[in-house]
Amino acid sequence: MSVFQNKIVVITGGSDGIGKALVDAFLSLGAKVATCGRNYDKLYQLQAAHPGKPLVIHAADVSKEQECALFIEKVIKNFSTIDILINNAGVSMRALLQDVELDALRKVMDINFWGTVYCTKFALPYITANKGTIVGVSSIAGFRGLPGRSGYSASKFAVNGWLEAIRTELLDSGVNVMWVCPGFTASNIRIAALNSKGESHGETPMDEGKMMTSEACAQHIITSIEKRKRTLVLTATGKRTVFMNKFFPSLADKLTRNYFYKNGELVK
């Protein structure tokens, strides 16, 4: 029997990518799952793909405090408690600082950072009572600032620091706090990434076929939750980037610049 059998797992941003893969995987392991997203049609399709399974869906924008509160209230109404919260909802960006409108940066921070704060705050009493787990799906960009992703990097640095702080606060409570930093993972995050005006690009500059799949990423996350790890850094490139940035930061600057730029222009 799975250790997640009948556990109450809450996943934000569960209609696409890593979030959807997590929903699928936890349901297959016998967990009871609640998820939210901004697109109700995608959530409905997700629920229709799991007939008879204990899956609660809720349309919510995690950048809005009240919508997060209502989502957690719905979870408690249906399942009474929460064992695991995975803050997965997020948005990326692709624009240079000289071009980006400040509202686009605020939007990224509101979704990635404040969405994590809101949902964790409202779920905390239940997770604490169960000595459960809080997870933040962050990014390698939370360890290494990436050009064209200044707002995204800032939001993920903030998520990592905030989770580290509350992990320390909760050390004696029995609650495990973990932040997950995938490398490039095949999902819709680059397609949905915001441009300089805060609108979706609608395309990706990367070769998605060469990246880790969302399903593989989800399995790594689930294994790490079971082992109650502190951090999870994924992909060889991701691990190499974190290592290089820690011990050889100036070289990492040059290598990162060379990867994202061609002939002086941002191409990735």
Rank of each mutant, 00 (worst) to 15 (best):
P205N: 00
I111C: 03
L102M: 15
L171F: 15
T241S: 13
S28T: 07
K254A: 13
G161D: 08
Y259N: 09
F248I: 09
K74C: 05
H50I: 03
E199Y: 06
L194F: 11
N188G: 11
T241M: 13
L46Y: 07
K7S: 01
V9E: 06
V62M: 07
K20I: 07
E101A: 09
T12F: 00
G264T: 08
K42Q: 15
I127P: 08
K229D: 12
N88D: 04
E65C: 12
F113W: 00
L29H: 09
A59F: 01
L170H: 04
A95E: 03
F71M: 03
Q219R: 15
N39S: 04
G13I: 02
L163C: 04
G30W: 09
W114R: 05
G161F: 10
M206P: 02
S80D: 14
P54S: 05
K197A: 14
S150F: 02
T204P: 01
F247W: 14
E203I: 11
G238H: 05
A31F: 05
N258Q: 13
I166A: 05
N160Q: 10
I76E: 07
I111V: 14
M244P: 02
F248W: 11
M178H: 01
T12S: 10
A218W: 00
T133M: 11
L146T: 12
A25T: 13
K64W: 01
S63A: 13
A69W: 13
A154Q: 01
